[in-house]
């Protein structure tokens, strides 16, 4: 996992439970005995809070003090398009990860234990494979000479399309990266749904499909909300995959921030973009907290 962005947390590693860890830490900070949380608190302060504060300061002072960076960005059609594009892509990845992940989690949490174990194993395997390795693997698969093109050509699609450097390709790869998070968030909730609920529904006359729709699905919704929150927020900050696989004309916000720093050396604008992304994420967390409760991210 080498995905890093200026905003995806000091540890730079999005993982299931990351948000809980944050909520748990918050609680521990408020209640726990000092010696237990002091190391973590110092670490976060030094490597997360301080740099983040520095970014905020830069956004307000570079090249000169004031809100100039923000007014310029919010007045820029290009930036707003990038922001919209990023939100759209994150939403698409979230929906795709849910459509793929929900059935997977359903089977994995079901009564067929061996099959469930194999599925979870395969998911964990792709999860443990280095992020960069997976990104390069996608570059090979999507490449003009890659297996996907060959396969499409053999189906009679000429000239075969290449997904490399398209936003579709980046979306597919990001979905692949996010499915494990979705599966684990949904699985954690499904595993606790007593099979007796569905049986009760059936004994009361509900066809299995109806029992699923009226009982199992609603009971699994907390997992869906958790998984979607996790995937959506993580995807907003994706950097490596959209930059290496995506279309240069349809960048996501992290890529644009990177360009600002590496190519234009405009630290003020880059910081302001980061702050705006941070505000979007915080707003999402606030919504989540408002309607679900941060402390209930993993419990019902």
């Amino acid at each position: 996992m080498n995905e890093t962005s200026s905003l995806q947390g000091a540890d730079g590693v999005p993982r299931p439970g990351g948000t809980t860890a944050a909520a748990g830490l918050l609680r521990a900070l408020l209640k726990g005995p000092l010696p237990l949380y002091l190391p973590a608190a110092l670490f976060l302060l030094a490597f997360f809070i301080v740099p983040l504060g520095y970014v905020v300061v830069m956004s307000l002072t570079e090249p000169r003090p004031g809100l100039g960076n923000f007014t310029a960005l919010l007045g820029s059609r290009h930036f707003l398009m990038v922001l919209l594009q990023t939100l759209q892509t994150a939403a698409l990845v979230t929906v795709c990860a849910l459509l793929l992940g929900y059935p997977l989690a359903y089977v994995a949490a079901g009564p067929a234990r061996r099959l469930g174990g194999v599925l979870l194993g395969v998911i964990a395997l792709s999860f443990w494979t280095s992020f960069l390795v997976r990104t390069y693997a996608w570059m090979v698969i999507f490449g003009r000479q890659g297996p996907l093109s060959h396969w499409l050509a053999s189906l009679g699609w000429r000239p075969p399309p290449s997904l490399l450097f398209t936003s579709t390709g980046a979306t597919v790869a990001m979905t692949h990266a996010m499915v494990p998070f979705m599966v684990m968030a949904v699985y954690a909730v499904m595993k606790r749904i007593d099979e007796r609920y569905v049986r009760a529904a059936q004994s009361l006359g509900a066809h299995p499909l109806r029992a699923f729709a009226l009982v199992y699905l609603p009971l699994s919704l907390p997992g869906v909300v958790n998984g979607c929150t996790l995937v959506f927020i993580t995807t907003l900050g994706f950097y490596v995959m959209p930059v290496l696989l995506g279309s240069p004309n349809q960048q996501m916000i992290s890529g644009v921030i990177g360009d600002q720093i590496e190519q234009v050396l405009d630290f003020g604008a880059a910081s302001a973009m980061s702050v705006i992304l941070l505000l979007v994420v915080l707003a999402l967390f606030w919504l989540y907290h408002r309607f679900v409760g941060l402390d209930r991210l993993w419990s019902r």
Partner: peptide, 20 residues
Amino acid sequence: MPAHARNIGVVFQNYALFPH
């Protein structure tokens, strides 16, 4: 006959009331 067609009432251990 599938379970949902049997017209048998079941009271489960721990009740299994639908929490939602």
